[in-house]
Design a protein around this nucleic acid. Structure first.
Lengths: 185, 185
DNA sequence: GCGGCCCATGTCAGTAACTGACATCAGTGT
DNA sequence: ACACTGATGTCAGTTACTGACATGGGCCGC
């Protein structure tokens, strides 16, 4: 017989999202999350560096998909094109769980501290994309700027996909990116 | 005789920057900042919502300058042009205190929590610029995208201005913005 | 199949960020 | 003179987070 229930991080993340939805982020203590997940507060902090982090488990996977897409693009691809495709690929990863994304976004929108964390994750993704572009031989400043443009399109596309009903996330991100290119041309 | 020294917020901000430089952000308690400024810890939190905020007093002024620049641009100005000019105008505001900016940036760079706050301030500026663009009759998505492009150029230009020796901040931001436009064209 | 190590978790005490409630008293206006 | 304002002090409390040490099932080598 197993000594503990399996997947403590997952149970904690689910309990946290539930409680944040029920009582709000501020009104939810880490102790309450841990209790619902059937562990102690100390165990929460062994899996998540802080209370905010419990909502950002997936951001690492997202970053990896986008970076991989940049790295694996054919050598012939134009930088400005491949960046758009990469962030769209990242969008495809999230597209399957729209309800979860909406629930999570509602919590984040209500809490500046969580918005900060989300922005930090996007900034880290930007840095990683820029690094991947540099690895393809693109100049420093150009890599940085293209990464920022791509992530900006991702950000806007994602936000609109949460609110609207219609189209797919990757298509929305690509559309935003294309519109940005036309806007500043 | 005045009951208290003048300008408690200013004294707190200066004391904080000193101490963060001497001991690091984490190793500096709010109590220590307050003591150096000659007030109590409670007074610190009356002027700054939290420990991070003490480094971001100027961000409001920056946002106002940029937004005003967008709002006051001639009606004939192209949106994509006026955004670049607006963020460059914001840069001009910061340009006079390069040493301060560098000292502050060194502290922020060493502390993820402070980077988060900086990103939140930039995001708020983005939202304000987008709103100012909408007020000029620019469509929602376009306003959002142009604001993001402008702030991205500001962000990159600012980061490079801190590291390099040469050119002015506003020029660097304009150059970054122009390069972005050419890159995605 | 037995001894021992591993490692996720529990326990507990401590620090520091932040908050609410109430007290104080120089300056200011009447 | 006198009330009133508003910035500050005082103090007790909550909660996020950390370090140190204990526990005990699972599993590996023998």
């Amino acid at each position: 017989m197993a000594r503990w229930e399996r997947d403590a991080p997952g149970r904690l993340a689910r309990a946290a999202l539930e409680l944040f939805g029920e009582r709000g982020y501020e009104q939810t203590t880490v102790a309450a999350i841990a209790e619902r997940a059937g562990v102690t507060e100390r165990t929460f902090f062994r899996h998540y560096a802080d209370k905010r982090e419990v909502l950002f488990d997936g951001s690492n996977a997202l970053q990896q998909v986008v970076v991989a897409s940049v790295a694996e693009a054919p050598a012939s691809a134009e930088p400005a094109d491949l960046v758009g495709a990469a962030v769209a690929a990242g969008g495809a990863l999230l597209a399957e769980r729209r309800d979860f994304a909406r629930q999570r976004a509602a919590v984040i929108a209500a809490e500046p501290g969580l918005q900060e964390r989300e922005l930090l994750k996007l900034e880290r993704m930007t840095a990683a994309v820029a690094e991947a572009l540099r690895a393809r031989g693109i100049a420093d400043v150009d890599a940085e700027l293209l990464a920022r443009a791509g992530v900006a399109a991702f950000h806007l596309g994602f936000a609109r996909w949460l609110v609207e009903e219609g189209d797919g996330l990757d298509a929305g991100i690509l559309a935003a990116y294309a519109r940005l290119r036309r806007l500043v041309a």
